[in-house]
């Protein structure tokens, strides 16, 4: 198939950017979206131009490196996948496709479609862990975990840190990302000791990074390649409220 691509090009963080138009020719319907971009890039290089910068690594939907707005939708129209899992058979010959980086104050553009998601790491730094020194752990079966809780913790832990939730949110909030980690750790007995300090510290860092507030649009849940539910945000809010009551009582 032949496609017309409008791709955001931007040289660096401090440069202005703009859409540029490219033709993608003879693309196989079996190619992945990123392979289609590979083909375009090979042609650009041969023509003496610089290829389009985009992040990718595992190309099987688990590392969370890739991500771009495709016709205004994070990771494209299919749903429940990362960009690398999108295949061209979903498009038609002659389609026009608009490709942009994630847009959020807290995710500055580094180049073309590559953004800096370091803010996510700093939210984890603020408390997205259980403090356990290597070697100090009790036997793994010493603390049974209700299967229901373990399964729900796993559902939240499946976040790949891609940033689609932020890109989808009209407020550019990272509340789904933050809540997924708060939920994962807060559901497990091992995570109880730090549960309330964790939620306060992580939300504080979230706000400090310049992410917006959550106003329950639910766009994040729609965009999440792993189907993480906004129920996690409700849980985060409950924990946050408990934490603030506890603080008020002290």
């Amino acid at each position: 198939m032949n496609l017309t691509l409008h791709i955001w090009r931007q040289d660096g963080p401090r440069d202005g950017g703009a859409f540029q138009t490219y033709q993608a020719k003879d693309i196989s319907e079996h190619a992945s979206f990123l392979e289609m971009l590979d083909v375009v890039n090979e042609e650009l290089i041969k023509a003496g131009q610089e290829p389009i910068a985009f992040e990718h690594d595992c190309r099987e939907g688990i590392c969370g490196s890739c991500g771009m707005m495709i016709n205004g939708v994070p990771h494209g129209p299919r749903g429940m996948i990362a960009t690398c899992q999108l295949h061209m058979r979903i498009f038609n010959d002659g389609d026009e496709i608009w490709i942009e980086p994630w847009r959020a104050t807290a995710f500055p553009v580094i180049r073309d479609l590559v953004v800096d998601r370091g803010a996510f790491d700093r939210i984890i730094d603020a408390g997205g862990y259980i403090s356990v020194r290597t070697g100090s752990a009790p036997d793994a079966n010493a603390t049974p975990v209700h299967k229901h809780d373990a399964d729900r913790a796993m559902d939240a832990a499946t976040c790949i840190g891609c940033g689609a939730c932020v890109a989808a949110c009209p407020n550019a909030s990272a509340m789904l990302f933050t809540a997924a980690k708060v939920t994962h750790l807060g559901l497990l007995p091992q995570g109880q000791t730090e549960r309330y300090a964790r939620v306060v510290d992580m939300v504080h860092q979230h706000d400090a990074e310049g992410f917006g507030n959550c106003t329950n649009h639910g766009a994040c849940q729609e965009a999440c390649p792993k189907g993480i539910s906004i129920d996690t945000i409700a849980r985060l809010n409950r924990d946050l409220m408990v934490a603030s009551w506890a603080a008020a009582g002290e």
Binding site: I130, G135, D139, A140, H184
Partner: peptide
Amino acid sequence: IDQAVAQGVPFARE
């Protein structure tokens, strides 16, 4: 396994 469970790795459970 002990270390991972203590960190909150959600292994499959019975």
